[in-house]
Design a protein around this nucleic acid. Sequence first.
RNA 1: CGGGGAGUGGCGCAGCCCGGUAGCGCGUCUGCUUUGGGAGCAGAGGGUCGCAGGUUCGAAUCCUGUCUCCCCGACCA
Length: 513
Amino acid sequence: MTNIRHALSVTRDADFAAWYQDVISEAEMAEESGVRGCMVIRPWGYGIWERIQKLMDERIKAAGVENCYFPLFIPLSYFSKEAEHVEGFAKEMAVVTHHRLIADGKGGLVPDPEAKLEEPLIVRPTSETVIGAAMARWIQSWRDLPLLTNQWANVVRWEMRTRMFLRTSEFLWQEGHTAHADREDAMVETLRALEMYRSFSEECLAMPVMAGEKPENERFPGAVATYSIEAMMQDGKALQAGTSHYLGTSFADAAGIRYQDREGQQALCHTTSWGVSTRMIGGVIMVHGDDDGLRVPPAIAPHQIVILPMLRDDDGDAALLAYCEELRKALAAQSALGEPLRVMLDKRPGKATQKRWAWVKKGVPLILEIGGRDAAGEQVSVIRRDRLWREDGKVNFSAEARDSFVARAAAEVADIQHSLHVEATARRDANIHRGVGTLAELTEFFAEEKRYPGWVELNWSRPTGDALETVVQQLKALKLTIRNTPMDSAPAEGNCVFTDAPAVERIFVARAY
RNA sequence: CGGGGAGUGGCGCAGCCCGGUAGCGCGUCUGCUUUGGGAGCAGAGGGUCGCAGGUUCGAAUCCUGUCUCCCCGACCA
C-alpha cells in the first residue's frame, strides 16, 4: 500500500537499526540517561517488564524455587576464586575502590585517597560467587538439597558497544541458582529452566525460539554445559533470549559448597544457574514490531484494551465519559489468558486521533474509539493493532454493538496473542534454511549484505578444542556464529560441513545480536 | 578500545568552512472556525548552542581537553 501514512518515520526495510531505536523512542519505552550505556526505562517499557516479571516469577515459584536478595557488591576475593569465571568477566567489570569524596579545589569532587578500600568491591556482573558463599553456609547435609534460589536484580557489565534493551551496561534480570546432590539432578534442573524459558517465550511473548545447547566456545565462563533459547529477529539475525547453565562442581569447589551424604561422606554439590533479562523486551520489539511501532503481545501488555473517548470539550462529554466508564467496567470483568482484562480509559484532554497514534506506536492490542454516536447507539468502534490497515490504506475501524463486543473481547485478546505467535513462527520457519552441505555454499548463502537471509541449519561433527576454533574462525570471517544444537536434534545424515567427518548432530548458524 | 559521524527551544534540523543581535519546521500555549477519523487560520511563549578551558574587542562558529549518542570493527553470560 503506497498510500499508507505510517506512524513511524523509518521503516524496517529502509534501516532496521534506526527503526529499532525509533520504536523505543516513539513508544516511550526507554531513553538515554546521560550515563554511558545505561538507559532510563519509561513507564511503558517498565510496565512490559513488570508483566514479564510477574508471569516468569509465577513459573519460577511453581517449580519450588524461592526468591532471595544478595548484595550488589561482591568482594574481589570471592570473584577471583573461579579461574575461568574471572577470565570471562574481568574485562567488563565496574570496580568500587573508594568510599568517600573530597573537593578537588576546582569546584569538583574526587575520590578521597585517604578513603581507599582495603579490598576493592566489584559491582556484580552475575552472582554465582556471592550466592555460592551463602550456599556454602546453608548446605550441610543431603537433607538440605536441592537448594533452589532465585533473585530479581540489576547487574552491570561494562560492554564496549551498547544497544537499548539488547546490551546495556546495567540491566535487569532474574538469576536462578541451584545446588544439587549429583550431576543427574542438576541436569534435570538445568533443562527444566531451559524448558521454562522456551514455553514462557512461546506462550507469553508469542516469540518462537529454538532451545538447545551452546557449543563449547560459547559456554558461560566456568560452566560445564550452557543451553540457550534463540529467537529470530525480523532482519534475520538471532538473539539469545535466555540461558541455563550446568556448572558442574567447579563453583562448589571454589565456594566450598559441600554436603554430607547418606553414607556420611563429604561431597561437592553440583550447581546450576539460569537467567533472562530486559533483553527479552528488545526481542519482542524486533519480532513483533512493524512500521507503525510496537505490537505488544496481550499477555505482557500493561493495557490490553485502551478506550479513547472522542471528547469535544462540550456538554456532551460527561455522558460520553459515563458510557466509556461503564464499558471499561464491563470489559474489566472479563478474563483473558487466565487473568482479568487490563482495560484503560484514557480520559486525558486532547484529540482522540492524536492519542490514537500514540497508543498505536505503543502497540496496545485493541483500541476502542468511542464517540457520541457510539454512545447513543450502544456501539463501539474497534481497532485491532495487528490488523491496523484496510486494503484501501485507511485505518481498519470496525463498528460493532457494544454487548456483542464485550461478549467476545476476551476471545479477541487471546486471538491476538495467538495470531502474533503464528505470524512470527511462520516467518521464522520460512527463514531457516536446510540443505547447505559445504562451506562454499554457506559463504554463498550469506554473501548479501545488510538484510540477512535468516538461519542455516546444518550438519556437523561437533569438533572440540583447536578443531572447533578453526570452525569458529571460518564462521567469523562470514560474521556468523553457532547459535545452538536444538534439543530435538535428530542424528544427522551425511558429513560435517566443516570437517567432512561423519555428522553427529545439527546446529543453527546465523548472524547474531 | 580503534576508525568514522553527531550533540543548537520538547522533537527534527539549518547556521560553523569565511567569528559580528540565534533561525526554520513540527509540537506547545491562546483565540476563532472546524471536527466520525492523523483539522485550518491568526497570534504568543520557549534556547547559558553537551561540558570545561583557551585565542579574540567579540565565539554556536577557531584551538585544546572531556562527556554522551549513532554507524563500522574489535569485544561480548
